[in-house]
Design a protein around this nucleic acid. Structure first.
Length: 954
RNA sequence: GCCCCAGUAGCUCAGUCGGUAGAGCGGCGGGUUUAUACCCCGUGAUGCGCCAGAUAAGCGGCAGGUCGCCGGUUCGAAUCCGGCCUGGGGUACCA
C-alpha cells in the first residue's frame, strides 16, 4: 500500500492557531515603534482628504480604567478605519494637566505650600507629578494598540499650550465676554475655591429643616393687603429651609405673585397667632405644626404682599417680601427665605429688589467677625446655635430631619455651599454667546441624536460660567485690575497677548514675577495682576484652538469629538462655548458619545460589588485585541456590559476569525499572486461566488465603519467566517485544494479567491484586531508594504466571464442560493442515515435528488461536480416533470427529518457500494482500475501523475 | 423631583410598513475527522404534572402562547399609545 499523503496539498503556515496575544502584542508594539508606523502612515496619507478626530484629554492622574480604554479603542477604530477608507486621519493624543486633583496629590506627597514650599516650587512639583502620570498613562494607552503621535502629544501644561491658551483667552476679552462679578458660586470648603457647574455632583445629604416665623412689622399693612381686619395677635409669615446656616444672610422672604395665600388664625401652643401661608400648603403646614383648630381670616394673591415689611428672626433687621417665580408649592410653606449671597435665585431677587448682598461666611466656612451672635463659628457647628436662638426668640415653628439631594464637590464628595465672592465669569448673554451657541448646536451632527437635545437644554439654562479658581496649579487669568476700583485694564486683550509671549518664553511662573509689571508700562503703579487661575475646563475647552493652531496636520473645525455621554456638560460644552466665543462656530462637525461600562447585570462597576474589570488585567491575560473586539462587539450607544463570561465569548469569536484567516493562509502556501492568479474564464464558479459574497460583505463593512456601527461589523464578519466560509465554502474547497495538482487551475482558482478574501478580510479586521491583522499581513503572500495600516480597502476583482469550457454563456449563472437550500436538506438526510448506522461519513453516501424541472436543471448544471458541493461520493439528479412530489422517505420517520425535507424535493441516499479511494476518500466505481495505483480512483490517478482533473463549478 | 437611554434565548446582537419571534456564539447530546480550536445533526423563550429517596438527565403528557410588567388601539402588536418596574446616565431655582 502506497502512502499518498505526500501527494496531497495540505495546509502549511507559520501562523499559529493560538494568538498568545499577551506575549505577541508587545513585540508588535516594538515593531511599530521601530518602523515609525505613525510617521509612515502620515507620509502615505499625505494629500488625501483629511479627517480629524480630536482627542479629549484624559486627566493626568491615576491609571486608566476600563472607561478610558473603551474610549481609546473607539477612537482608534475610527482613526484606522478612516485611514483605510482613504483619508488622512491624524491622531494627536492629549492630556489635561492642571487642576486641583494634582494639587492634592502633590500636597499628599510634599505637604501644603507654605510649609517650606513656595508657590513656584509647588507648581514645579505639580508639573513633575503630572509628567509622571502622563508617562504612565501613555504606556497603557499605547498598549491598547492605539496609533497616534505619542511622542508629540498635547499637554495642557506645555508652555506653548499655555501661551496659546492665553491668546485664545485674549480673543474672548476682545469680545467683552469676560467680566468680574460678585455673586454666589458653588464653593468647596475643602478646595478653598469656587467650583464650576461641572465640578459639582448631587448626592443625598441629611439636614435639619426648620420652619421659622418672620413677624409682620405692621399688622395694618397686612390687613390692607388682604382687605380684612387682622385679629389682634402676632402675625407672621413662616418659611421652611434646610440650610439654617444661611439665615444670618437673610435679606427677604419671597412669595409667588400668582399663588393664593391665606391668613389663618390659630393656636397650637404658642398663644393665639396669625400665619400667612400658601393656600395649597395650608394642609401640610397645619399637620406639621400640629394645628388642631384654625380659621381662615382672609386671602389674597402673593402679589398683594409685595414689599410688606417683616422682622428678621434674630437680627435687628427689617426685610421685605419680594416676589419670584421660583417659589412653588412642592415643599415648605409657599414663602421662601431669601439670602442673596447664598443662592442663584436669591441673588436674582437681590438684584431685582436692590437687596444688600451679604455673605457673612468666609472661605473656611466661618462666620465673619462682624457677624452678630455667630462670629467665628463654623457653619457646620452653628446649626445648634441658630436653632437655640430661634427657639429663644419664639421664631421656631418646627424642626425635622430631612434627606435630600444636595450639591457636593465631585472631588471631595463633601457638601458645597453657595457663597458670594468676587469671581471672573464668561457671560452667557451679554455677547450673544448663548444664542450663538444654541444656533451652532443645530449645525453639528450629534450621535446618538438625543445628544443634541441634552446639550441644548444645558446651554439654554446654564448660568454664567465661573472661570476663576483660587488655586495655584493652573493657567493664570491674565488680567490686571485697578488697585482701587478693581476695574479691568482698558487694554486687557492686548495685554493678555503680551503676557502670552512672556509665558511662552518663561512659563506661567512669569505671571507671578514682579517684573511682569513691565508690560503695563506707566500703568504699573495703578494696576495689579489677578492671582486666580483658570478653571481647567477652560484649558481643555480651548484645545480645539491650541491644537488646531500648533499642529499643522490638524485643521479646524475638526470632524469629530468622541467621549462618554457625561461630557455633554463637560468638554463638549466648554469646547463649544470657547469656540463660539472665539470663532462664532462650533469646534466640531460631529459629536459621538458612548455609554458607561457596567457588569453583566447592568450594574455600574464598583469595588464593593467586586465587578470591576481593569484594562491591564485584560490585556495581560487575554490580550488587547480581545478587549478591542469586545469594544467592537458591543453597541456602545447605551451602557456596555463586561464580565468574564462576555470576554470568554469574545475570545471564542476571536479564535474563529483568527482560524479562518489561518486556514486561508495555510492554503495559500505556494501561491504567488503575481503569477498564479486565475481570474479569467477558467475561474471555478464556486470561487466566483465566494468573491461575490466577499464583495457584498465589504460594502456592508465599509458602510458600517462610516456610520460607526462597529457591532454590525463584528457580527457580519464573524457570521461570514462561520457560515459562508467555515460552514460551506472552505469545507467544500478542501477536496479541491488538497487533492488536485498544486499548480493546476482548479487549485489556483480556489487560491485566487482565498487570496482576495484574505486581503479583504485582513483590512476589515485591521481597525479592530490591529495586532492580529498585522500578524496576518506579514504572512500573506505577495508584495506588500510594512503594515496593513498603510493600505486602503482591498479591491476585490471581478473575474472575466466563463469561456466555452463551461458550455457557453447560458451556463454562466449558477443559482447558488437554490443549491445551498438543497445542500441543507441533504445534510439533514445524511445525518438521519448516520444515526441509523447506515453510513458513517458523508463520503460513504451516494445521493439522488428528485425534483421539478427548473430546480433539476439548476442542479444538473453542475454535472459530476455536484457531489463536491455535497461532499458525498456521488450525487445525481432526476427531474420529475408532471409527477407529484414523492411521499416522505419511508425510512427514518423521525418527524423532524421528514419535516426538514424540502417540498417537492426528494432525497434518496444509499451507501456507496464502491471501494474507498485511499487518497481522496471518495467511494468510486473506478477505484482499483489502474494497475499502478490500485487503491486510487480515476481522478486521483490523473491528479497524481496526469494533467489533473478539470473543475468548472466546484 | 424632572428629563433622556436601555430591557428580545445563558452571551452578543438583528428584527423593514403593525402580519407565523431570528442569527451567531455558548451549553447539552450525538456523529465525523486530509483545519481534533474544522465540519455535520439534534436540542431554545411560560407554567405544571409523571417516573425518582433526592438532584440532574431522560420519557410521556397537560395547559399554554412568547419580546421587562400591566393595560389600551387593532382582525392582528416585539413594533403604535398610556402607565408601571429594573438598570444606566443627565439635570436641579429641592428654599
Amino acid at each position: 500500500m502506497t502512502d499518498y499523503k505526500d501527494t496531497l496539498n495540505l495546509p502549511r503556515t507559520r501562523f499559529p492557531m493560538r494568538g498568545n496575544l499577551a506575549k505577541r502584542e508587545p513585540e508588535m508594539l516594538k515593531r511599530w515603534e521601530q518602523q515609525d508606523i505613525y510617521g509612515q502612515i502620515r507620509a502615505a496619507a499625505k494629500g488625501r482628504p483629511r479627517f480629524v478626530l480630536h482627542d479629549g484629554p484624559p486627566y493626568a492622574n491615576g491609571d486608566i480604567h476600563l472607561g478610558h480604554a473603551l474610549n481609546q479603542v473607539l477612537k482608534d477604530i475610527i482613526v484606522k478605519s478612516r485611514t483605510l477608507d482613504g483619508y488622512d486621519a491624524p491622531y494627536v493624543p492629549g492630556w489635561d494637566c492642571h487642576g486641583l486633583p494634582i494639587e492634592h496629590q502633590v500636597e499628599r506627597r510634599l505637604g501644603k505650600q507654605g510649609n517650606g514650599l513656595d508657590a513656584r516650587e509647588f507648581r514645579a512639583a505639580c508639573r513633575e507629578f503630572a509628567g509622571e502620570q502622563v508617562n504612565r498613562q501613555r504606556v497603557d494607552r499605547k498598549r491598547l494598540g492605539a496609533i497616534g503621535d505619542w511622542d508629540r502629544p498635547y499637554l495642557t501644561m506645555d508652555r506653548r499650550y499655555e501661551a496659546e491658551q492665553l491668546r485664545a483667552f485674549a480673543r474672548l476679552l476682545k469680545r467683552d465676554l469676560v467680566f468680574r462679578g460678585y455673586k454666589p458660586v458653588h464653593w468647596c470648603l475643602n478646595c478653598q475655591s469656587a467650583l464650576a457647574e461641572a465640578e459639582v455632583e448631587y448626592r443625598d445629604k441629611r439636614s435639619y429643616a426648620v420652619d421659622v416665623r418672620f413677624a409682620v412689622v405692621d399688622r395694618s399693612a397686612l390687613g390692607k393687603a388682604l382687605g380684612v381686619a387682622v385679629p389682634d395677635c402676632p402675625a407672621s409669615i413662616p418659611i421652611w429651609t434646610t440650610t439654617s446656616w444661611t439665615l444670618p444672610g437673610n435679606r427677604a422672604v419671597a412669595l409667588n405673585a400668582a399663588l393664593q395665600y391665606v391668613l389663618v388664625e390659630t393656636d397650637f401652643g404658642a398663644g393665639r397667632e396669625c400665619l400667612l401661608v400658601a393656600e395649597d400648603m395650608l394642609e401640610s403646614v397645619a399637620n406639621r405644626y400640629g394645628m388642631e383648630e384654625r380659621s381662615v381670616v382672609g386671602a389674597a394673591p402673593g402679589a398683594a404682599f409685595e414689599r410688606l415689611e417683616l422682622r428678621h428672626p434674630f437680627f435687628d433687621r427689617v426685610v421685605p417680601v419680594v416676589l419670584g417665580d421660583h417659589v412653588t408649592t412642592e415643599a415648605g410653606t409657599g414663602a421662601v427665605h431669601t439670602a442673596p449671597g447664598h443662592g442663584h435665585e436669591d441673588f436674582a431677587m437681590g438684584v431685582e429688589y436692590d437687596l444688600p448682598l451679604d455673605c457673612p461666611v468666609d472661605g473656611d466656612g466661618r462666620y465673619l467677625p462682624a457677624t452678630a451672635l455667630f462670629a467665628g463659628q463654623h457653619i457646620d457647628d452653628a446649626g445648634r446655635g441658630i436653632f437655640e436662638t430661634l427657639r429663644e426668640r419664639g421664631a421656631l415653628l418646627h424642626s425635622e430631619r430631612v434627606d435630600h439631594s444636595y450639591p457636593h464637590c465631585w472631588r471631595h464628595r463633601t457638601p458645597v455651599i453657595f457663597r458670594a465672592t468676587p469671581q471672573w465669569f464668561i457671560g452667557m448673554d451679554q455677547g450673544e454667546l448663548r444664542a450663538e451657541a444654541l444656533e451652532q448646536i443645530t449645525r453639528v451632527e450629534w450621535t446618538p441624536d438625543w445628544g443634541e437635545e441634552r446639550i441644548r437644554g444645558m446651554i439654554r439654562d446654564r448660568p454664567d460660567w465661573c472661570i476663576s479658581r483660587q488655586r495655584t496649579w493652573g493657567v493664570p487669568i491674565p488680567l490686571f485690575v485697578h488697585r482701587e476700583s478693581g476695574e479691568m485694564h482698558p487694554d486687557s486683550a492686548e495685554l493678555a497677548l503680551q503676557v502670552a509671549d512672556v509665558v511662552e518664553q518663561h512659563g506661567i511662573d512669569a505671571w507671578f514675577d514682579p517684573s511682569l509689571g513691565e508690560v503695563l508700562g506707566d500703568d504699573a503703579e495703578l494696576y495689579e495682576p489677578v492671582t486666580d487661575v483658570m478653571d481647567v475646563w477652560l484649558d481643555s475647552g480651548f484645545s480645539h484652538h491650541v491644537v488646531g493652531t500648533l499642529w499643522d496636520e490638524v485643521s479646524m473645525p475638526v470632524d469629530l469629538y468622541l467621549e462618554g455621554s457625561d461630557q455633554h456638560r463637560g468638554w463638549f460644552q466648554s469646547s463649544l462655548l470657547t469656540s463660539v466665543g472665539m470663532y462664532r462656530r462650533a469646534p466640531y462637525k460631529g459629536v459621538l458619545t458612548h455609554g458607561f461600562t457596567v457588569d453583566e447585570q447592568g450594574r455600574k462597576m464598583s469595588k464593593s460589588l467586586g465587578n470591576v474589570i481593569e484594562p491591564k488585567q485584560v490585556y495581560r491575560t487575554l490580550g488587547a485585541d480581545i478587549l478591542r473586539l469586545w469594544v467592537a462587539a458591543t453597541d456602545y450607544r447605551s451602557e456596555m456590559s463586561v464580565s468574564r463570561e462576555i470576554l470568554t465569548r469574545v475570545s471564542d469569536a476571536y479564535r474563529r476569525m483568527r482560524n479562518t484567516q489561518r486556514f486561508l493562509l495555510g492554503n495559500l502556501h505556494g501561491f504567488d499572486p503575481g503569477r498564479h492568479q486565475v481570474l479569467d474564464e477558467r475561474m471555478v464558479a464556486l470561487d466566483r461566488w465566494a468573491l461575490e459574497r466577499a464583495r457584498e460583505l465589504q460594502v456592508e463593512v465599509v458602510r458600517a465603519y462610516e456610520r460607526y456601527e462597529f457591532h454590525h461589523i463584528y457580527h457580519k464578519v464573524h457570521n461570514f467566517c462561520v457560515v459562508d466560509m467555515g460552514g460551506f465554502y472552505l469545507d467544500v474547497l478542501k477536496d479541491r485544494l488538497y487533492t488536485t495538482p498544486a499548480e493546476g487551475v482548479p487549485r489556483r482558482s480556489a487560491q485566487t479567491a482565498m487570496y482576495h478574501i484574505a486581503e479583504a478580510m485582513v483590512r476589515w479586521l485591521a481597525p479592530i484586531l490591529s495586532f492580529t491583522a498585522e500578524e496576518i499581513w506579514q504572512e500573506l503572500p505577495g508584495e506588500r508594504g510594512d503594515s496593513v495600516l498603510l493600505s486602503t480597502w482591498h479591491e476585490i476583482p471581478e473575474p472575466d466571464d466563463y469561456g466555452d469550457a463551461a458550455g457557453g454563456a447560458e451556463s454562466a449563472e449558477v443559482d447558488w442560493p437554490a443549491i445551498l437550500r438543497v445542500r441543507q436538506q441533504v445534510t439533514v438526510r445524511l445525518e438521519a442515515l448516520r444515526a441509523e448506522g447506515i453510513i458513517g461519513s458523508p463520503l460513504d453516501a451516494n445521493v439522488m435528488i428528485e425534483c421539478a424541472d427548473s430546480l433539476a436543471a439548476t442542479l444538473k448544471r453542475l454535472g459530476e461536480e455536484l457531489r463536491f458541493v455535497f461532499i458525498t461520493s456521488d450525487a445525481k439528479v432526476r427531474s420529475m416533470t408532471g409527477t407529484p412530489p414523492p411521499p416522505p422517505p419511508p425510512r427514518s420517520l423521525d418527524s423532524d427529518a421528514a419535516a426538514g425535507t424540502m417540498w417537492g424535493v426528494g432525497i434518496e441516499i444509499v451507501p456507496s457500494p464502491h471501494e474507498k479511494c485511499v487518497r481522496c476518500w471518495h467511494k468510486r466505481v473506478d477505484v482499483g482500475q489502474h494497475a499502478e495505483h490500485p487503491e486510487l480512483c480515476g481522478r486521483c490517478v490523473s491528479n497524481v501523475e496526469g494533467l489533473g482533473e478539470t473543475r468548472i463549478y466546484a
